[in-house]
Simulated assay, not measured.
Amino acid sequence: MRHGMTIGEFATLTHLSVRTLRRYHQAGLLEPATVDPFTGYRYYSAGQIPSAQVIHRLRELDVPLAEVRSILATDDPQRRADLIAEHLHRLEEELERTRAAVVSLRRLLRPDREDLRVELRSLPARTVVAVRGHVTLEDSTRWYDAAMAELDAAFGPAERTGAPGGRYANELFTAGAGAMTVYRPVREPRAGGRVEIVELPPADVAVAVHAGRHDDIDVTYGRLGSWVVEHALAVDGPVDETYVVGPRDTATPADWRTEIGWPVFRLAPGG
């Protein structure tokens, strides 16, 4: 006497192959409701259809087997939702990294040196308010956001006199960790909390503008670096970024403009 649906019937109803259902059984994800002790035939119940479909969706999202088991094992709907949300967040981060890599590759595959405009500037000494720290490259985005938020909270729009900037030690890129400084020019600098008053020394820099998201800003860095090698003498020193238009100004990434200032030694006045 049959005790449910055969594996073939269950496969038809769930749109899962017999092979997949056998694999789920072997992995301990979805065991048949009963197994005939004489024939070894697997039989499934109608109540197992939602579980089979949930497992299939999770595996399509590359959820590891151990996490699938944890999700299925919990009877708490909120806990189950949290486990799935954690994995979805990881997938979103991976998709963002993939998208950024695609953008960079497209620019690299279609180089157009003519659209890189470089300007040599002499920056005067400046007094700014800043947050400084020794940061890993992996943590640099989070650190930057927190530091800039602290500066924004301390100095309102009426107190600011220019675009914010960032200064990054070479070691941040060459060694994966180094000094980072984010700063704002303001009317009346004052210290408080992590915010300190910093004197930026004068510098000669070659400046190029990166348009849009920072996903492929490394491409602009590379092209600017090549220009510096060809036209000037590079000197040791931190690279400056000035966020002329950024996420705090507009939610439209296409409008973002970041000036990259590469330290150089000028060969001649006005060169």
Score class of each variant (00 low, 15 high):
A52R: 01
E86K: 05
R57I: 08
Y43C: 06
T39Q: 04
Q53F: 12
L65A: 06
I84C: 10
H87E: 01
I84K: 10
G40V: 11
I55V: 08
E31C: 10
P37C: 10
P64K: 10
R80S: 05
R57W: 05
G47H: 14
L65N: 01
V63I: 05
P32G: 07
P37Y: 09
R59V: 14
F38E: 08
Q48V: 06
L58G: 05
P50H: 13
R79Q: 14
Y41D: 01
Y43V: 02
L29F: 04
A46R: 13
T39W: 08
E60M: 13
D76Q: 12
Y43W: 11
L72K: 07
H56K: 12
L83N: 04
G40E: 13
D75L: 07
D36V: 14
D36L: 12
A33E: 11
A52L: 01
R80D: 03
L58M: 09
E67N: 03
A52E: 00
P37F: 10
Y41F: 14
L58A: 10
I49M: 07
V54F: 02
V35N: 00
T34P: 01
V68S: 05
D76N: 15
Q48K: 10
T34Y: 04
Y43E: 13
D36Y: 11
E31M: 09
L83M: 07
V68L: 08
P32S: 00
D62C: 12
S70R: 14
S70V: 04
A46M: 06
S70D: 13
Y44C: 00
E67W: 03
I84F: 04
V68F: 10
L83S: 05
G28Y: 03
A81W: 01
E60N: 13
A85R: 14
L65T: 11
I84Y: 07
L58E: 03
T74Y: 03
P77M: 03
T34N: 09
S45V: 11
P32F: 00
E86T: 09
P77S: 07
D62K: 14
F38A: 07
A66E: 14
R59W: 15
V35H: 00
R59A: 11
L29W: 06
L58C: 03
V54C: 08
V35M: 01
R79P: 00
R69N: 00
L58K: 07
